[in-house]
């Protein structure tokens, strides 16, 4: 490989030197096969580090607090992942808490997107900063009323995209045509004749991440709370009551032949 790379490089170089017409053209590149040199350096730019200090100290003061603990790392994944399951479960549970205090009917399903989860949660101590880094966006929680046909269309879209964080539902992705099969909501088969209440974030409700079908929901209610804030409220509560966050069992989205 080395010899091959070397000889190709020389050939290209020779070409570059001999062909003097055709100016400005890229004569060639190397094979880009570089050995990685594992040299360790004691190098930080202290001026740059110090320049961030006033911001850093304020950040540590407000964000360094440990707010809960996890039993294992939570990472996102497809068709499902521990982090997405956790975020969707908390979103559904906390939204329903808010809805019940407002004497509103509960949501059936939560649907989020992997793109909205920006970091993994570590094993052990979780700081407020970690929650901000997983959920940096200012997304608001909204409840959409969707008929069963629309819900089916959304699950088909999710299936084509190899899953997304969901809660309150399960389904299977047909590997052949990437359609959603065996959709269960609240443990019961999807009923296209009824309406479902879907909790999500305004970004997706507005058609973000290609969730354009949400635009056809028959009703939209704002819970007037950020997704991040309900995550913070929930994780603080877990920490305060000494409960360790344990990943939910997997299996809500699975592939079938």
């Amino acid at each position: 490989m080395m010899t091959h790379t070397f000889s190709r490089f020389v050939v290209l170089l020779a070409g570059a030197c001999l062909v003097s017409c055709h100016s400005f053209e890229l004569a060639g590149t190397t094979d880009h096969q570089y050995m990685m040199n594992d040299s360790t350096q004691h190098e930080i730019d202290s001026a740059i580090y110090r320049m961030a200090d006033p911001y850093r100290s304020q950040l540590m003061k407000t964000m360094g607090e440990i707010i809960c603990n996890t039993s294992s790392p939570l990472e996102k994944g497809n068709p499902e992942g521990a982090l997405g399951n956790f975020a969707a479960d908390v979103c559904l549970e906390m939204s329903n808490r808010i809805l019940s205090t407002q004497q509103q009917s509960k949501a059936d399903v939560a649907i989020l997107n992997n793109g909205g989860l920006r970091k993994s949660l570590p094993q052990g101590s979780v700081t407020l900063s970690d929650i901000f880094e997983v959920f940096p966006f200012e997304n608001q929680v909204v409840v959409l009323t969707c008929n069963g046909t629309l819900v089916k269309r959304i699950f088909d879209f999710i299936a084509v995209n190899n899953g997304t964080p969901i809660s309150g539902a399960s389904f299977q992705i047909n590997r052949n045509d990437h359609s959603a099969e065996t959709i269960l909501i609240g443990g019961l088969p999807l009923d296209t004749a009824r309406n479902y209440r879907v909790v999500t974030v305004d970004y997706l409700a507005n058609g973000g991440d290609r969730f354009t079908d949400f635009a056809t929901a028959s009703k939209r209610e704002e819970l007037n709370i950020k997704l991040r804030d309900i995550m913070i409220e929930y994780t603080r509560e877990q920490g305060r009551t000494g409960k360790v966050i344990v990943p939910a069992p997997s299996g809500r989205i699975a592939y079938v032949q």
Partner: peptide, 23 residues
């Protein structure tokens, strides 16, 4: 974090050409 000693491990691309003796 600022109290920790930090180092940079630089995995720099060392060219195959260097490996073959030609800088």
């Amino acid at each position: 974090m600022s109290s920790r000693r930090s180092f940079i491990r630089r995995i720099a691309g060392a060219s195959v050409l260097i490996g073959t003796g030609l800088s």
